[in-house]
Computed example of a mutant assay.
Amino acid sequence: MDNLDSGQFRGAWVWKANAIPKIKCFIWQCCHESILVRAVLAKRGILDFDTCPLCNNYPETIDHLLRSCTLAKSFWESISPPMQANYFYGMNFMDWLRLNVCSVACYGSLGIDWSIVFSIGLWCLWIRRNRVVSQKAKPSLNLKVEVLAKATEYVFVGANVHSAPTKSTIQVKWLQLPVNWFKVNSDGSSLGNLGRAGGVAL
């Protein structure tokens, strides 16, 4: 397993995620504890408090914001991840990110990869948190609709944007003409619609 403390983190899986670039960058920052939640800011000496702005009960770590906070749990329970709850909430945070981002499971009847729903869910949790902190907005309690709408849009609009175009081979060759027939290649130019013109034939 990847381990930042031991220097064994291998994050190639992040860049292979089926997600738009900004979400891949966000996940990468989560892996490196670079998301500026209050616990990170307090650790850097920028804040002197670290309480979660959503639940006001626990330190706002990245894990807390995205998984352990009561509002995050409420969101994930509404989404119903394709794994047992004790496994989903009990595993190491880094393993949790990697296993869900790299999952090949299909989500519900929509036929969307769970990895897509999960990655967009992480991003929407972060955006909701920022609205509460910067805009003093009330936290949305129904992220499920927004996340599934974005996931569906990504699948049908964005997921195949960079797909390689279909290539076909066209064979070009000269065919022998019937007797007494000739082929003429020509080119010409005109100086004005009714002006002088020139041409050549071979």
Rank of each mutant, 00 (worst) to 15 (best):
S140P: 00
C106K: 09
L148I: 10
E146I: 15
T166H: 07
Y154K: 03
V117E: 03
Y154T: 03
A151Q: 02
C106R: 08
V157S: 08
G121W: 07
A159F: 03
K150L: 14
R129M: 06
E153C: 06
W123I: 10
S168R: 09
R98Q: 14
K136I: 01
F118V: 04
E146W: 09
S168H: 07
L125K: 08
N130M: 06
S163L: 12
T169F: 14
S103V: 05
R129V: 03
G121T: 09
W126D: 00
V145N: 14
I127A: 10
K150V: 00
V117W: 05
W126M: 02
L175Y: 07
Q176R: 12
D113I: 04
G158P: 01
V132A: 04
A105I: 04
N142A: 14
V161K: 15
I112Q: 03
S163R: 12
V101A: 09
K173G: 10
R129L: 06
W96N: 05
Q135Y: 08
S103M: 04
P139Q: 05
I127K: 13
C106E: 10
I170A: 08
V104P: 00
N142V: 15
L125M: 15
A137T: 06
C124N: 12
L99Q: 05
D113V: 01
A149P: 00
K167R: 13
I116N: 00
V161T: 13
G121C: 08
A137L: 12
K167A: 11
G158Q: 11
E146K: 15
K167W: 12
Y154H: 03
D113W: 09
T152F: 00
R131M: 07
S119G: 09
W174D: 07
I116T: 09
V147A: 12
W123Q: 05
F118H: 02
K150N: 06
C124P: 00
V104C: 10
F118P: 00
V104N: 14
V147C: 12
L125N: 11
R128I: 01
Q171Y: 12
V147P: 06
S134P: 00
L143F: 02
L97K: 07
V147R: 07
F156V: 13
K144Y: 05
A151C: 08
